[in-house]
């Protein structure tokens, strides 16, 4: 049973189709990754879902109700965008209180605990925040909103390695305790892959793929060894990427790994290793 449904949704800007006949069903309480290159249509999709813009055609349903001009449905979703939505002179503590007005379920105690963990000073004004801390503030608002659906748009933008790690940790802690439907839009697939349950890949406004991440990760592998042997192995196989270093060659193959493939590679003296996720992603979105 779908919670959110896109039915043949198209968004045109003049001759350009930002979203082209996209159909998609999202189930409740899963973590989805919306993945695609810049300009692929990720933000268009989320803006349509959250009623910031209208589709040219198609339907978008939330619990079988249209999301368009539907405040009751819209209050079920918290959308963390890259955009600056808050008055720059506002203090963070005021932003927290302000958010609670719109999201009565907002968990103030949790928001303050997160601010403490990220060392975000609540007395600071929004305009004084660095890019990283601006992201952190918005992450905290989203996580504490307690909305049934949380949408993150490039959540780790500008965060350093420690803060990214802390974010993934806190996200998992919250999700385990308090499952929600989460959509994370990003182009940083490698880092986020393990927290996702399903991946949605979008390219030029079209849905390329929607499948469990586990399955996606198993849809490619890398083979390496002597160049001639690798060439022999990859003949008639779908190669995503190849690299050579002297007589050494490695090639990423888009195919599910099985024991027969392992034996074939072994017979040629080749090594098999994991799916190069970022390469796979580039291949699927190029």
């Amino acid at each position: 049973m779908g919670l959110i449904e896109f039915r043949q949704v198209t968004k045109e800007y003049g001759p350009v189709k930002a979203l082209d006949n996209a159909s998609l069903v999202l189930e409740p309480l899963k973590i989805y990754g919306l993945l695609g290159r810049n300009g692929a249509g990720k933000t268009t999709m989320l803006n349509i879902l959250t009623n910031k813009i209208f589709p040219t055609s198609g339907e978008i349903l939330f619990n079988n109700e249209s999301v368009i001009e539907n405040d009751r449905v819209q209050s079920q979703m918290f959308y963390m965008t890259e955009m600056k939505l808050y008055p720059s002179g506002m203090r963070i503590s005021q932003v927290f209180r302000w958010t609670r007005e719109f999201y009565p379920q907002f968990d103030m105690e949790y928001a303050q605990a997160l601010a403490h963990k990220f060392a975000l000073n609540l007395r600071k004004q929004v305009k004084t925040l660095s890019t990283g801390y601006s992201s952190i503030m918005k992450l905290i608002l989203a996580m504490a909103s307690n909305a049934p659906v949380i949408i993150f748009d490039e959540p780790v933008l500008g965060l350093d390695a420690n803060h990214r790690d802390l974010f993934y940790h806190e996200l998992m802690a919250r999700y385990n305790e308090h499952p929600q439907t989460i959509i994370i839009s990003t182009h940083l697939i490698d880092e986020i892959a393990d927290v996702l349950e399903e991946a949605i890949i979008i390219k030029d406004g079209r849905l390329v793929l929607h499948q469990p991440v586990e399955q996606l990760l198993q849809s490619a592998y890398t083979v390496s060894g002597a160049d001639a042997k690798v060439d022999q192995f990859i003949k008639n196989r779908k190669v995503i990427h190849q690299e050579t270093l002297g007589r050494l060659k490695s090639a990423a193959v888009y195919e599910q790994l099985n024991s027969q493939i392992r034996r074939d590679a072994e017979a040629l003296g080749l090594d098999i290793s994991g799916a190069p996720l970022q390469k796979l992603f580039i291949y699927l979105t190029n």
Partner: peptide, 14 residues
Amino acid sequence: TTEISVNFKINPAT
């Protein structure tokens, strides 16, 4: 599974 998920930052379904 919760402890594993949080510790390793992996989806609880995994």
